[in-house]
């Protein structure tokens, strides 16, 4: 018996991306062998390997099932070929077919489930799995935080999320993504954050705008609140395989910045302030005139979005509150000392 079940399209990488295969040769051999000799690779101890018995008749059933699925996939690939020959430019249709062709490939399923951090998002099928994963948790968390914290509608009316937004701050040497809505200290937020924006549609050099706004800036004169713009980036170029906005990118593209980063410095006795991160997809490059922000105080985010024809595709949020380090951050950025508010509301 052959050591591999795969003989058809799924082991042929002339027209298919190599990222559709499992990288590690050992793992690949285990997934593609008909009867799992010595058990799954995850079994480390020799005694566990010896104890392993593969399910009865797996060596007959698995290759059969694999063959059926592979043949189906082959048919779909030939359909795609026909479409391409006809000169079809319906990218979405082709992408859907590509997902369908690979969705049951054991190697692809393995990669999507167990190697989710290293999958190649230029492949439609991996985007499909990544989207499913996002919808099952991160999307819900983000929307719940945006709603319960009233970031929608206090900043923008609503959001139909399309991208997964991850954010972290470079405050220490350990990288951890921030959960939406968490309360961060002024020390953590003293330097601009790093973003990872995952698109689930095909994306090549799409342009994005990023705004960080604080709708809880006190407006003592009117006994109300205004919105302050804390950071604004425009024309940020991202693709499926290049989705991170980090210091390397910011350093080599100084033209991204509309407004320099202003760290949160909440004043005493004002409670928690919300900092909303909004990600917009652009139609094209932004107009110099309309994208100019003269005054970051009393920033009208709705007007800005309308004037620049931005489409909100993702959001993130954190909260800040006065702490003992706020004065240091103010000094670092040359800001005046913070005011002190009465403890109780009148």
């Amino acid at each position: 018996m052959s050591s591999s079940v795969s003989r058809g399209i799924w082991s042929n990488f002339t027209n298919r991306s190599k990222s559709l295969a499992i990288k590690s040769a050992k793992l690949q051999k285990a997934v593609l062998s008909p009867d799992l000799p010595n058990g799954p690779v995850s079994l480390k101890a020799l005694s566990s390997k010896r104890k392993y018995y593969s399910p009865i008749d797996l060596d007959k059933i698995y290759p059969l099932a694999y063959e059926i699925l592979e043949k189906k996939s082959e048919k779909i690939y030939s359909k795609i070929e026909d479409l391409k020959k006809k000169g079809s430019e319906n990218v979405e249709e082709i992408n859907d077919l590509l997902v369908e062709a690979e969705i049951n490939n054991p190697e692809v399923v393995y990669n999507s489930l167990y190697a989710a951090n290293t999958i190649d998002l230029t492949q439609p099928v991996y985007r499909h799995y990544a989207k499913k994963q996002w919808e099952s948790y991160n999307k819900m968390i983000t929307m719940q935080r945006l709603e319960t914290l009233s970031i929608i509608p206090d900043t923008l009316p609503t959001l139909e999320p399309e991208v997964d937004v991850h954010m972290k701050f470079p405050h220490n040497n350990v990288d951890t993504w921030v959960e939406p809505g968490s309360i961060l200290s002024s020390n953590v937020t003293s330097k601009p954050p790093i973003f990872k924006i995952t698109e689930f549609k095909e994306s090549k050099n799409d342009l994005y705008t990023i705004l960080i706004v604080n709708p809880d800036t006190p407006d003592v004169e009117n006994n109300s609140y205004t919105t302050t713009l804390h950071w604004a980036l425009k024309d940020v170029e991202l693709s499926n395989n290049d989705s991170i906005i980090d210091i390397q990118k910011l350093d080599s593209n100084p033209q991204y910045s509309i407004v320099d980063y202003l760290p949160p410095t909440p004043e005493k006795n004002l409670g928690k302030q919300r900092f909303a991160v909004w990600i917009f997809r652009q139609d094209g490059k932004l107009n110099e005139e309309t994208s100019k922000v003269e005054n970051i105080n009393n920033f009208q985010i709705r007007e800005f979005v309308e004037n620049n024809k931005l489409q909100a595709v993702g959001a993130h949020a954190w909260r800040s509150v006065w702490d003992l380090n706020v004065e240091n951050v103010r000094k670092e950025y040359g800001l005046p000392a913070g005011r002190i508010f009465s403890r109780d509301s009148f």
Binding site: S150, P153, D154, T155, P157, T158, P215, P218, D219, V220, N223, S224, Y225, K268, N269, L270, L324, R339, I340, F341, S342, R343, D344, S345, F346
Partner: peptide, 27 residues
Amino acid sequence: PHFEPTKRRLGRDVLDGKKAEFEANYL
């Protein structure tokens, strides 16, 4: 209106003088 920003009141005073000093030192 559901999609408008909520109207909110600040309802706090900026302190000065001794009160501000007390509040600044309060932990």
